[in-house]
Simulated assay, not measured.
Amino acid sequence: MTNDGQVASPWAEAEITESSDKNLRKVPRTSGEYFTYSSAETAAQTICHTMTPQRWSELLHGPVRREIYGSSTNLACLVTSNRMRIELATQDLDPSGWRSYIGTPSRDIQHAGRPGRVSTSMEAPFRADGYVTLVDDSSAANRNALTFRVTAGSLATMDRPSAFTDLVDDVLTGVIEPLAKPSSPMPAVTGELGLMGYVPTPPAPRGGVVDVPYPLSAQQLCTAAVAALGVDPATLTIAPHHDGQCRITNGADVAVSLWLRPNVNRAEFTETIAGRPVKPARDKLREVWLRDDVPASLWVNWFSGGDSTPFIEKLVPLLLAG
């Protein structure tokens, strides 16, 4: 990780002599609408795992390195070989504004039944930029499109001029087919700002809540928070939202909101609560680094009386249990 909080890229590193991974971890497989509500880091992990290292090596003509890189708000899957580089990420994209994301001229494409566009440059370095929409719906909470950039420093390993565009098509097919599979229906929105009805949902074991799509992580955070508050749920207004936020209040002395977001700046977490690193308080806000292996933090905005520390001390073990 670099000093400015970026995960380093291998683009200028030594020659890749054997396939390897960096910053990769196993995550639950999701697809369709549920996948588009994954955090940027979880989505990047999922993308990197859509094909085996062997298949990536076949497509990129040699050993590859798969890794997660970027900033907290723009994490991507990066796959590199000695001649090629592929960047894949999810993004909230309005297809009507595609010109701001890729160059011109461009052409329509379709993979696994999903539409997109690509702009290809056949002058060295050879490059293809574009996107494919994974679901028809786009909201402020989900990342509905897969964006990509494929760069080749040399086409020496390719036997015909169309080989580069064929390779781009093969990569997109291998990535998009598993991601575009329909998911089960999302929880229904019942109010403004993506509000859903509260359904008590135990948190995924061992901090697995960090990889759960936002609508489900909101339900899990609400469930753990109610238990940590130790009050009768019937006295509370419990509001899980599609963007992963949980808001709880009783209209009097209890008011708290919490959510999970990617974060690669571990060095800022200089204090400890419940055995986990936390950032120094900013007014009513505390951030907790929930798992050592995941660049994500739990945000707790505490509007109730007193300090939030006792609440966090009860909440964190509930999220990490199992």
Rank of each mutant, 00 (worst) to 15 (best):
T237N: 03
L60P: 01
D166N: 15
V254A: 11
R127K: 15
W56T: 10
G230R: 06
R261Y: 14
V150P: 06
A255R: 07
A12R: 15
V278F: 04
Q6V: 14
Y214A: 15
V300I: 13
S57K: 03
G70M: 02
A296T: 03
A156I: 10
P277V: 05
S184E: 11
S308F: 00
D307L: 09
E271N: 00
V7W: 04
S184H: 06
I176D: 00
A163C: 11
A89W: 13
A163F: 05
A141Q: 06
E13N: 14
E15H: 04
Q91K: 14
T157N: 06
G207W: 08
I86E: 02
S184K: 15
P262R: 11
P262W: 12
W302I: 08
H61K: 14
R127L: 10
E313L: 08
R261E: 14
A76L: 12
G130M: 11
L167V: 01
V189D: 01
R160H: 13
R206A: 15
D283M: 04
F126Y: 15
G197M: 03
R149E: 10
M122Y: 12
F126A: 06
A180Y: 10
L285G: 08
M122I: 09
A43I: 00
L318D: 09
W11E: 14
V294K: 03
R282K: 14
D94S: 08
S100C: 08
T133Y: 09
I47N: 03
R291E: 01
D92W: 07
C77P: 00
L134I: 06
G194I: 04
I47A: 03
F126V: 14
L285C: 04
N142L: 04
Q54D: 13
